[in-house]
């Protein structure tokens, strides 16, 4: 059994989907040109992870081994389609921005990875929590990377918040400097790679600075394998 504390710590830090497992890089790198885009995709991924983990855990007792993976894929594909349709109905402008990347959540290996590696072996409660924490870890990485690229690339923060929160949210936008010329590299794909590399460096550096962890990660490693 993994404790709640460990699940949380694994999802947010130790086995962070974006910074440690390096899964789901395609949407991660493509969408994070602004904070709001990152937030949109992050929330969609998080909801998918919680729902798919819970459903996989619910059926873990009677799913037959030979058809296990196709069944997981079916569940994930259904959940993603439902999430996509809902976003299209409620946040159409955001849908126009995220576009192709919502259906692509299906191919985010983190989701099938959690279904197979954790949810299929644990009760619904821990499985849902694992989905929530893995999703949150991914969401936070998306937000930081999006913020980094938006500040450097456009000189703004929270631009186009109205896509998610309605017209009142336009005032959320922070302009660092009115004459900032922008830095194209940060917006283009190479900027995404540099940004992600920077985040990984910072995370590893923080890990190194901390005193060596207590001898418990053996179990955690087995769980996230």
């Amino acid at each position: 059994m993994t404790t709640r504390r460990e699940i949380t710590h694994n999802g947010l830090w130790n086995s962070n989907v974006a910074l440690v497992q390096l899964l789901g890089l395609c949407p991660l790198l493509a969408v994070t040109s602004t904070v709001i885009n990152g937030l949109g995709l992050g929330i969609a991924t998080l909801i998918t992870l919680v729902l798919s983990n819970s459903m996989v855990s619910l059926i873990r007792g009677f799913v037959r081994n030979e058809v296990r993976l196709p069944v997981f894929v079916l569940i994930i594909a259904s959940v993603v389609t439902i999430v996509e349709l809902t976003i299209k109905a409620l946040f159409y402008d955001l849908y126009l921005v995220l576009g192709i990347f919502i259906p692509l959540i299906v191919t985010n290996c983190a989701i099938i990875g959690r279904a197979e590696g954790f949810a299929s072996r644990n009760a619904v409660g821990p499985a849902a929590l694992d989905g929530l924490m893995m999703g949150l870890g991914f969401l936070i990485a998306l937000l930081i990377l999006g913020g980094l690229r938006e500040i450097i690339g456009f000189g703004t923060l929270f631009a186009h918040a109205e896509l998610m929160f309605g017209d009142d949210a336009k005032s959320l936008m922070i302009e660092i400097h009115p004459d900032y010329p922008g830095f194209l590299l940060a917006v283009l794909p190479p900027g995404a790679f540099f940004g992600l590399a920077l985040l990984i460096i910072v995370k590893n550096w923080l890990d190194l600075r901390r005193p060596a962890p207590q001898p418990q990660p053996l179990e955690a490693a087995a769980d996230s394998a």
């Binding site: 058809v67 196709p70 069944v71 079916l74």
Partner: peptide
């Protein structure tokens, strides 16, 4: 089993 899930998902 697989068929049931396909029907359910659809």
């Amino acid at each position: 089993f697989l068929w049931l899930f396909a029907v359910g998902g659809t």
